[in-house]
Amino acid sequence: MIDILTYPFMQRAFISGTIIGLLCSIIGIYIVMRGLSFIGAGISHASFGGVALGFLLKINPIITAAIFCILTAWGITIVSGKEKLKEDTAIGIFFATTMALGILFIGLTGNYNVDLFGYLFGSILSVGAFDLYISILLGLLILLLIVMFFKEFLFISFDPEGAEVSGLPVSFLRYLLLTLIALTIVLSMKIVGIILVSALLVIPAASAYQIAKGIRSLFIWSGIFCFFAVYCGLFLSYIFDTPSGATIVILSAIVFFLILLVKSAIKIRKS
């Protein structure tokens, strides 16, 4: 069983998975706390446009996707903050536009043999050596920023108004958090896939909410669920040759529904 770790591509997938697990479990808590799930989905779909642009310009798609995702995250916030537009409407517009751009770029490349399927649904074979270096570097940077602003992110996610009146630079922190969400999505894209990456940001954190007894245990449980899904998902997708993203997300969802089921059973028993 351990021998799968002797393959370099699996080693890369597991190292990358560790970074993804760590980042998604922490960022996911902020996303669920502030109700940012839909913006997460919007940003992840924007990465499709970025990936396609990377193919068109023959640049590493991670770089173009990062730029696309960050601009989309900021764009949604700027537009919904300034214009007479609800945030979900702004997300819907950006979501569709960036996807449309992606399809346009793919059309313009004139080459449909590109490894688009891997980006859309995630693949354990897809993490190259360069991708891994980027993952490690960017992952450490994101982690450092989370450690630096951990309590501030918590405050603006839990009580934005309270954070603002207490004198925190809420707007700066909001943009920084959105940037970190965008970068986490880009890092997770290769293994989990564009379509499903937002689920990994939401489901483990949502499961943690069901059972956590405090803020610290919220993050710990989210980490446990995220690592369980990523490691088991990678392992199972190797054994059964299934797409890694779908396997990881389905495992997360199974954990989530099991928790709900057990909680309901306990409630019924008590009553």
Partner: peptide, 21 residues
């Protein structure tokens, strides 16, 4: 009105938030 009371935060941690700034 903008607070999610389902967040499992203790009273101590909640009051501590006021010190963050």
């Amino acid at each position: 009105i903008n607070i999610d009371f389902n967040v499992p935060i203790s009273v101590f941690d909640f009051v501590l938030m006021g010190r963050y700034s």
